[in-house]
Design a protein around this nucleic acid. Structure first.
Length: 533
RNA sequence: GCGGCGGUAACUCAAUGGCAGAGUGUCAGCCUUCCAAGCUGAAUGUUGCGGGUUCGACUCCCGUCCGCCGCUCCA
């Protein structure tokens, strides 16, 4: 009798994760630090297992392409800190640095440069023109219209008259006002002046100052995504590794974002780990590859044992696309805290040639690619020489599957978290990890701590530990040891009993069914390997 | 950053302004031939942190940090 994770179990899950050493709050003894988490002894094993599987599926054994040929894929581990111009070129300096304004009255938050202000001038019936104050509306082509409607209402309440609608060019962004003027503005959703706070710059990138001098000229950023390190090395990889377009470069590593509100356990943290791959392809094939990776990535998540009904695609609307993207789809998961809605897990973006073009422009280094195969093919097709020259040299387009490793850990924890009622325990909670990803694969126990059983168990342990992550435990009752293994998601428990002394067989207990099979000592390894996936 | 709620042992939680406790877990010993069993014992707290009120503060007040929910943002 098991029940699915619901929002109410999130706290229980976090407690269990803490109690058994999966995830701790960072700097806990100092009261914690918002948005940062430490992965404990079991958490790091789980995380590494997921990371290794991604690397295996992406770099060492990438999928076969749509045309049946193996995809070229290489790995990379670029620096967290890169030349600051990287982030200028990528657009992160501009788009990640938004001055924000809060309304004290309505609790709304706005981008300061999106608030447009204008004087509300109303021509009364007696011919006088009254100034009703400095009103604001959200920026946009319809700003004058919205402004007019709003002021008309105010005017009617104060005696009527004709609103003098400002032309769109005459609106003044909130950021351009003086401090005194800002204190008099009536917010877009407010009805009294002075409820908007001063704009506060909010840069989503964390910065630091490498070297001895701490000034603006030496400012550098901790990467907000691993992707740019790949783009910076596009030429290096293309020049030194014999890969040919189309090819991919994959990377796993830490990224940093100064999130406004870190929330929901490790879902949104300020330091997180990404698994990103940039796939470079001819512009004409980009959509084909976009479709390909979209499907491949969904297949990959299913290999983690995630229930298909907990995963779904969500295509981005045109107006929510990032500054760089031509098309993006998210793979979403039904987290306990978003349910019944879904939350982001991975984004697959068609980035066009934006990144390489930007870096080419800012670095003045050519980042185009000469496609010799395409040249030959065009020649065979009898295309004119000028045309061949033009088309066989291009800036590749990029398809980017970018997922959060630390989010994958969260999904794994959510998906595996199970509550069952068992004999003696009304609510027994444990992690039902797929064997392949379980931090500990196997516990090895002597049924009792005497009669020569510990010696045999220890010998088996010394052998198995060279092949799987194992634990040996001779202490306490067997039930307690099984329960402890179940709790941390260990799929198998091997017990040495007195029968082992006579026929050299042991029992192997399955975490999910609690059933045991007898296997000879010699076959334990192959038995486990078969079930490990 | 704004608003609301909260913070006591590793975890879950008690404690009229008056001796900081329980269960679970952990550890040790005994006992145990298969599922958190039994018995005995042990360790673990500047009650998030810092101030204030008071003879006396886990308890009341202020500040701060952290967490949860809602804005907002995002892999």
């Amino acid at each position: 009798m098991s029940e699915p994770a619901t929002p109410s179990v999130m706290e229980a899950l976090v407690s269990l994760a803490k109690r058994r050493g999966f995830v701790y709050q960072a700097s806990e003894i100092y009261g914690g630090i918002r948005g940062f988490w430490d992965y404990g002894p079991l958490g790091v094993l789980l995380k590494n297992n997921i990371r290794d599987w991604w690397w295996r599926c992406m770099v060492e054994c990438p999928p076969v392409g749509p045309d049946g040929s193996v995809i070229d894929m290489v790995g990379l581990d670029s620096s967290i800190i890169q030349h600051p111009t990287t982030w200028k070129a990528s657009g992160h300096v501009d788009t990640f640095t938004d001055p924000m304004v809060d309304c004290r009255k309505t609790q709304s938050r706005y981008r300061a440069d999106h608030i447009w202000t204008a004087r509300a001038m109303v021509k009364r019936k007696n011919g006088n023109v009254d100034d009703l104050g400095l009103y604001s509306v959200m920026s946009g082509d319809d700003a004058p219209e919205i402004f007019a409607k709003r002021i008309d209402k105010v005017a009617r309440k104060t005696g009527g008259g004709e609103v003098q609608v400002p032309v769109i060019e005459s609106f003044v962004p909130f950021t351009k006002l003086t401090t005194e003027e800002r204190a008099k503005v009536i917010g877009p959703d407010s009805d009294e002046p002075g409820t908007l706070t001063e704009p506060r710059p909010f840069n989503l990138m964390l910065d630091t100052y490498p070297g001895p001098i701490r000034d603006e000229a030496n400012k550098a950023y901790l990467r907000p995504e691993t992707a740019q390190g790949i783009f910076l090395n596009f030429k290096n990889v293309a020049d030194t590794t014999r890969v040919k377009v189309p090819f991919g470069v994959a990377q796993v590593g830490k990224s940093f974002r100064n999130e406004v509100t870190p929330r929901n356990f490790i879902f949104r943290s300020r330091e997180f780990e990404q698994m990103e791959m940039e796939f470079f392809c001819p512009p004409d094939d980009a959509l084909k590859w976009y479709e390909f990776w979209r499907n491949e990535r969904m297949k990959w998540w299913l290999t983690l044992g995630i229930k298909p009904e907990n995963l779904k695609f969500r295509d981005h609307d045109q107006d929510e696309l990032s500054h760089y993207s031509k098309a993006t789809v998210d793979i979403e998961y039904k987290y306990p805290f978003t349910a019944p809605d879904f939350g982001e897990l991975e984004g697959i973006a068609h980035r066009g040639d934006f990144d390489l073009s930007q870096h080419q422009q800012h670095s003045k280094v050519k980042l185009d690619y000469f496609d010799q195969e395409l040249q030959l093919r065009l020649k065979e097709q009898g295309v004119a020489p000028d045309e061949i020259k033009k088309r066989s040299r291009y800036i590749p387009n990029v398809i980017e599957p970018a997922s959060g490793l630390t989010r994958a850990v969260l999904v794994m924890l959510c998906e595996a978290y199970t509550v069952e009622s068992r004999a003696g325990v009304e609510k027994f909670e444990f992690f039902r990890f797929p064997a392949k990803f379980a931090p500990i694969k196997c516990g090895i126990f002597p049924l009792v701590n005497k009669d020569g059983l510990p010696e045999i168990a220890e010998k088996l342990y010394m052998d198995l530990r060279t092949k799987f992550t194992c634990e040996y435990d001779p202490k306490q009752s067997i039930g307690k040891r099984y329960a402890r293994m179940d709790e941390i998601g260990t799929p198998f428990s091997i017990t040495i009993d007195t029968q082992t002394l006579t026929d050299q067989t042991v029992t192997i207990r399955d975490r999910d069914t609690q059933e045991q099979v007898r296997v000879s000592l010699a076959q334990v390894e192959s038995y486990l390997r078969e079930r490990m996936g």
